Simulated scan of single mutants.
Amino acid sequence: MYLTCSTIILAISVAATRVAATPFKFPLPDGFPNPNPAQLAKIEKEAGGPLPDGPLPTVLKSTGVTTLQLLALNEIFEVAYFTEFLANVTNEVTGYDAKAIAPLSKQYVIDALTAVVNQEQLHAAGVNGILKSGNQSAIEPCEYQFPVTNFTQAVVLAQTFTDIVLGTLPEAQAAFAADAGDESPLIQLFGGVLAQEGEQVGFYRFVQKKTPSAAPYLTGGSPSFAFTAIQSFIVPGSCPQPLSNINLTTFGPLTVVTTPEAKNQTLEFVVPGAVSPAANSIVYLTGANVPLTVAISNVSTVAGMSHFTASFPFESGFANGLTIAALVKGAGQTYKTNDAVAAATLYGPGLIEVD
């Protein structure tokens, strides 16, 4: 199966809007995001373990605050996504019935998603607890809409955004290490979260009959790529706190029109603005490789949207799983780090899943 998150969103967003006209809203029946002690105990039981009981940081540096805000925003989004996914399977909504999930049993899928929902609730509560301990405001839920209408689409999208999380958490650990002080214990804590998310994505890949582990080294990212990706699921204007309070960049959308495959090919991209081969390039992040810059060509404009192509040299050493594409300022520039790519990005991330 060769699908991209961008392709999924482009192809079914209209259908999803019709089917899921009512946005997903909090709070949940179990009290999340503010469960009482009895509700929290039930969440912990269904999650398979409790919140960490060690001391929390009381002093957070600005980079650490931004990192934790991003992580909380993501964890709450994931609670919303998997709660809706679980409800669709439980209630056998069209496209999520027993036939759609075969050969898996309905109860197995319900048990798996129930664990994930409760685990993500604890991730979110844990991150917000750290923010509050450091005298920062907790991140509050927004409203969400998800561009999936059946079980297969839901699993593919779950794999894709979990892959983004797996690339973001090492960045978070690096930020906590650089800040040191009170934040140092967070390195190990989020190493555990990183491992837990890896277990999740193995399940999503297994359900698609993919090898559970995609590649020896997974694709890294940069916080602003994750921040931008999360916002594609948030109903505009629905967040109690302005997203501009989080000190990260929101990029313009980069849509991958062509369905990528595990071979060298040419991809078509679309952005809502002017581009030029003399002023822009595509950069790919794949595996643990140094970012790869390729030229763009065949630029045309239709109704204010710029269409262009770029090579996708998969056979030159790309990793299976997630590849991130970004349209950057400048032609032919080279970059040593993913963060340097993000600093030059105008449109992105283009999310490509190939394996």
Rank of each mutant, 00 (worst) to 15 (best):
C5Y: 05
S6R: 12
T7Y: 09
T7R: 14
I9Y: 09
L10M: 14
I12E: 07
A16F: 09
A16E: 11
V19K: 15
A20G: 08
A20V: 02
P23W: 02
F24G: 03
L28P: 09
L28F: 13
D30K: 08
P33H: 12
P35K: 00
P35S: 00
A38G: 10
Q39F: 05
A41N: 09
E44H: 00
A47C: 01
P50C: 01
D53G: 14
G54Y: 15
P55L: 05
T58K: 11
V59C: 11
T67Q: 13
L68I: 09
L70G: 10
L70C: 12
N74L: 07
I76V: 14
F77A: 07
F77W: 13
E78H: 05
V79I: 13
F85K: 13
L86N: 10
A87T: 14
N88V: 05
N88H: 14
V89M: 06
V89F: 08
E92K: 12
G95T: 10
D97E: 11
I110Y: 07
T114F: 15
N118F: 00
A124V: 07
G129Q: 12
G129V: 12
I130P: 11
K132F: 06
Q136Y: 08
C142I: 10
E143M: 11
Q145E: 08
P147A: 15
P147R: 15
V148P: 04
T152S: 11
V155W: 05
V156Y: 13
V156M: 14
V156T: 09
A158K: 08
G167M: 02
L169R: 12
A172V: 03
F176T: 04
A177C: 02
A178H: 02
Q188D: 12
F190E: 11
G192I: 01
G192S: 07
G198S: 10
F203M: 10
R205H: 13
K210N: 07
S213K: 08
A214I: 06
A214D: 07
L218W: 09
G220R: 06
S222M: 02
S222Y: 05
P223V: 01
P223M: 04
F225G: 10
F227H: 11
A229T: 01
P236T: 13
Q241L: 15
L243M: 08
N245L: 09
N247C: 01
T249G: 04
T255I: 07
V256S: 13
E261V: 09
A262P: 01
K263E: 10
N264D: 13
N264V: 02
T266N: 11
L267I: 04
E268A: 13
V270I: 07
V271Q: 08
P272N: 14
A278M: 09
I282N: 02
Y284G: 03
Y284F: 14
P291R: 14
L292R: 15
T293K: 13
T293S: 14
I296Q: 03
I296G: 03
T301S: 15
S306F: 02
T309C: 10
A310T: 01
P313D: 07
E315S: 15
E315L: 13
S316L: 03
F318N: 10
A319S: 14
G321V: 05
T323Y: 11
A325F: 04
A326C: 00
A326M: 00
K329S: 00
Q333W: 01
N338V: 04
A342R: 01
T345R: 14
L346Q: 01
Y347L: 02
Y347S: 03
Y347K: 06
G348F: 04
P349E: 12
G350F: 05
G350R: 13
L351I: 05
I352Q: 14
V354E: 07
D355T: 07
